[in-house]
Amino acid sequence: MTSSFAVSKHNDGAGVIRLAVRGEIDDGASDALAQIIGNAAGQPGVRVLVIDLERVPFLAAAGIRALLEGRAVALHHGLAYQVVNARGVVHGVLATTGLLSLFHTTVRHVPAHR
């Protein structure tokens, strides 16, 4: 059984948009994620795009592609791009593929309830 995929957008102020992703980023969700990231990157006033993977238990190769496409779109728009809060298997996938530093991936301490 897969977990439901969803993305919520948060304006963290000062031009920072955080996309909080929930659920597995697999073949079925990857195109939607890439499109959501692209839409957020194209909004006026955005300076930093943060992809929060705190609630993502699984990241397939298609999910990596979506994150890379999102990074390319963000850079095209002149935005900073970060992937944060990758944990467990997701962190391992990003570490193994060498993408942690490319995504400026960090683990931020965020409140448990949002």
Rank of each mutant, 00 (worst) to 15 (best):
A80R: 11
H76V: 01
A80P: 05
A6W: 00
E24H: 08
L79I: 03
V107Y: 14
D12G: 08
L100K: 00
A66V: 11
P44E: 15
R22E: 09
A29Q: 10
Q43C: 10
I25S: 01
S101G: 14
N11L: 02
G92E: 15
Q43E: 15
A66T: 07
L94F: 10
I25R: 04
S3N: 01
I51M: 09
A66S: 15
L75E: 07
A95K: 05
R108H: 00
F103L: 03
H91T: 00
K9A: 03
R108S: 08
G42Q: 13
S8V: 07
A86S: 13
F103R: 04
A41M: 12
H77K: 13
G70E: 04
G70W: 03
L99N: 00
V93H: 07
I17Q: 04
V107I: 15
A66Y: 07
R55G: 05
A86I: 11
A20P: 01
V7A: 05
L99M: 10
D31W: 10
P57H: 06
A61P: 00
V84Y: 01
N11V: 05
E54V: 02
N11K: 04
I36K: 11
F58A: 00
P44N: 12
H77T: 06
R47A: 07
A72R: 12
D12T: 02
V83K: 01
L79H: 02
Q43D: 15
S3M: 12
K9H: 05
V89H: 13
H77P: 03
F58L: 10
V83Q: 01
T106I: 14
L100Y: 03
A80G: 12
I37S: 03
I51F: 04
S3I: 00
E54Q: 12
V93Q: 06
N85H: 11
I25Q: 04
V21Y: 06
I37T: 07
G92I: 12
L100R: 03
F58Q: 00
S3E: 03
A74V: 01
G13I: 03
N39Q: 14
V50E: 02
G63W: 02
I37W: 05
H76P: 00
L59V: 08
T106Y: 08
V83F: 09
A29E: 10
G70F: 09
K9M: 09
I64C: 11
L59W: 04
G88F: 03
A32M: 14
K9Q: 13
V73C: 10
V50Y: 01
E69N: 12
Q35M: 11
P57G: 04
L59A: 09
Y81C: 04
Q43G: 12
L102Q: 13
V107N: 15
L68V: 15
T96I: 10
D12Y: 00
F58H: 05
K9I: 05
L67T: 03
V50H: 01
A20D: 09
A74L: 01
T2D: 04
H104K: 12
R22T: 13
T106A: 15
I37D: 03
P57F: 06
L33E: 02
A40K: 09
R108N: 03
L59G: 07
K9F: 04
E54K: 11
I36F: 07
A66H: 09
S101L: 14
S30K: 05
A40H: 11
I37C: 09
V93N: 06
L75Y: 04
V93R: 05
S30Q: 09
V84I: 15
